[in-house]
Design a protein around this nucleic acid. Structure first.
Lengths: 355, 355
DNA sequence: CCCTCGTTTGGTATCGCTACCATCCCCCGA
DNA sequence: TCGGGGGATGGTAGCGATACCAAACGAGGG
């Protein structure tokens, strides 16, 4: 009957606005805005009052209005290539969750690792109004893509790069420490003849894992030289590497593959050789991807909190973009998150030790 | 030279607005708005002119402004439960892509299938300003969640429900036809002793697949009764079912599992029994999830275009919401998309036939 | 004691778009 | 010929928030 009510298009409850809060707190909308956005130049008492009002009224800023007013077209890009695919699912969940929390839109773009493809992808992102990009592996290693993005004046956060360039924001686990921990675990089980399958040579994480492995081997000392094969993070490459490792004499009693897909391949190959895991052969992986729990025996592996990492990457991006607009030219941050060794059924004491 | 240019806070290129288009096309902003939003009451010639201008200038509407003005928080929800996990990745990619295309925001919400959990999830979605929800399996089967969502006056699109309720929008493949096709394929290979692992009993897709299987068996006629076990779409349940099937006498020569995870379990179990796939046992799955290509031998399975389905679901949602506001109460649509039988290495002629 | 400086606050002008209403125009029947 | 009806268009007023500037205030140096 009154027009305010009629104004409400949807008939739904009109949400509480900054003005309501301002009136309630007895200050101006501007002050409320400053408080909510953590601006400086607000006295403590005022801040208290306003925050109180915010809580009482259950105020939450209207993102559309905020974006419009601040003219910050806050869209973040997520440039994904061909990650060890189960990665993507978790990654997206984490990233999207964080994006929603910050009220920014996430724009997906697929991209091969060739110069032309990446150029085109970046152009599409720019056209889409994207101001920052999250780079999951393996794209985060591509210098081409990074250069391309930097030329377009995008902020970027690399995720899970083993050794990120100093000028790039990055969130990752400590691949070195994780691989060392896993190797120590194998050694503690009593294994002495170890096999290792390296990851793709142009990802720095591969090298970190390899370094972690050798570090543990060396600190233990007094071991026969481990067998090492080159892999490429794919199931297929794991198959080839496993074949070679299992053919060697004496055969390793434990194989550490640089990721789960390759570890799964080792297990498949072991079966074909009539070897039982873990009794005849211990197999461990890295990543704790979906496949790790969905094969039998379950894979002992290193868990990366992928969703969390993706989320933090988005957080950093948002902070950088907003901070950047505010002039606070924060230097690139490298953020380490904790990994975890997950023990399932694929690792056991070697027979010789058990006997 | 003019102050409009100076106004731009970031110093970056100001994006092209509705006014620019209007000026360029020689009409008013309102008319442009109507054209862009597919409104009626625009002459064809005007529409052409405007669309031309839009294309020329590369105009894309500012979401923030649109949302603000129309007070329609065009956010779509994606309520996911515990799908056969690799599903999620592709699903998200497809959904997010479509969301970006339509310029709507996608809000993720995880939800268990209990009443309290779903109630809470729905409340969170409402609070987040979501107006429509995509329901991937297995949530699309939950009456509780559907009711809850309908109470909140949300539009919903169910994805991959086997037999969707008539009053719900839905996009899926023809599970019945797909399962029948796969079964025919097994029969054509010469298998006669078949085993089947059913999917989770409270998902209608399970029953459709089962019906497709029996239909093919019956139309072939003249077969020993297939062995059937109940599964629950999990790897673990597949393991149990496989154990029983492989223990039966005479042992089936081909096992059709209602999804890939269970098929992978069958393969694992077969290995433990010393059976080689596909020489001693043919195993086929359903879904073409990531695991299908990442085990050895690769799994022959039914491919669902998951990303496409998710995308279409979002399309339908957007259409419904926009159309709905316009009063066009379109009736629920059921959309079928094409599946495909993917042959890999896990299926072969039975030994008896080969001999 | 005045003046400047820096903190704290409030006003005003948008941001880009759409809802709503007022026009204008053309075609029709009386 | 004129009035009426409905299609097609334009004008105006916000949506809710922030950027920018101006003003009010207390404190300290000359």
């Amino acid at each position: 009957m009154n027009k305010t009510a009629r104004k409400s298009r949807t008939g739904a409850r009109r949400s509480v606005t900054i003005k309501d809060v301002a009136r309630y707190a007895g200050v101006s909308p501007m002050t409320v805005s400053r408080v909510v956005n953590g601006g400086q130049y607000v006295s403590d008492t005022t801040r208290q009052t306003v925050m109180q009002a915010v809580r009482q009224l259950g105020y939450s800023p209207n993102l559309a209005a905020r974006n419009l007013a601040s003219a910050r077209g806050e869209r973040m890009g997520l440039l994904y290539g061909n990650p060890s695919a189960s990665y993507l699912s978790e990654f997206l969940v984490g990233a999207l969750d964080a994006a929603t929390r910050h009220g920014v839109q996430l724009v997906l773009e697929k991209c091969e690792m060739t110069p032309t493809a990446s150029r085109r992808a970046v152009r599409r992102l720019v056209a889409g109004g994207v101001v920052g990009v999250v780079l999951p592996p393996p794209l985060c290693e591509s210098a081409v893509i990074r250069t391309e993005l930097q030329t377009a004046r995008m902020r970027i956060v690399a995720v899970a790069a083993g050794r990120p360039p100093a000028d790039t924001m990055c969130v990752s686990i400590d691949d070195f420490a994780a691989a060392r921990e896993m190797t120590r675990y194998l050694l503690a089980l009593g294994h002495t003849r170890l096999g290792f399958i390296k990851g793709h040579p142009n990802q720095t994480a591969s090298e970190e894992r390899w370094r972690g492995f050798t570090a543990a081997v060396e600190e233990h000392g007094n071991l026969p030289a481990p067998r090492v094969e080159q892999g490429f993070f794919t199931f297929r490459s794991g198959l080839d590497a496993a074949r070679k490792l299992l053919a060697s004499e004496p055969r390793p009693t434990a194989i550490f593959a640089s990721n789960d897909d390759m570890a799964a391949a080792v297990m498949a190959e072991a079966h074909r050789h009539g070897l039982e895991v873990p009794n005849d052969l211990t197999v461990v992986g890295f990543d704790d991807s979906l496949i790790a729990a969905n094969i039998w025996p379950g894979l002992t592996t290193i868990h990366q909190p992928i969703a969390q990492m993706a989320g933090e990457a988005v957080d950093m991006l948002v902070a950088a973009v907003r901070g950047g607009r505010r002039g606070a030219a924060a230097e690139p941050v490298h953020r380490l998150v904790a990994h975890e060794l997950i023990t399932r059924e694929s690792a056991a004491r070697p027979k010789s030790a058990a006997a």
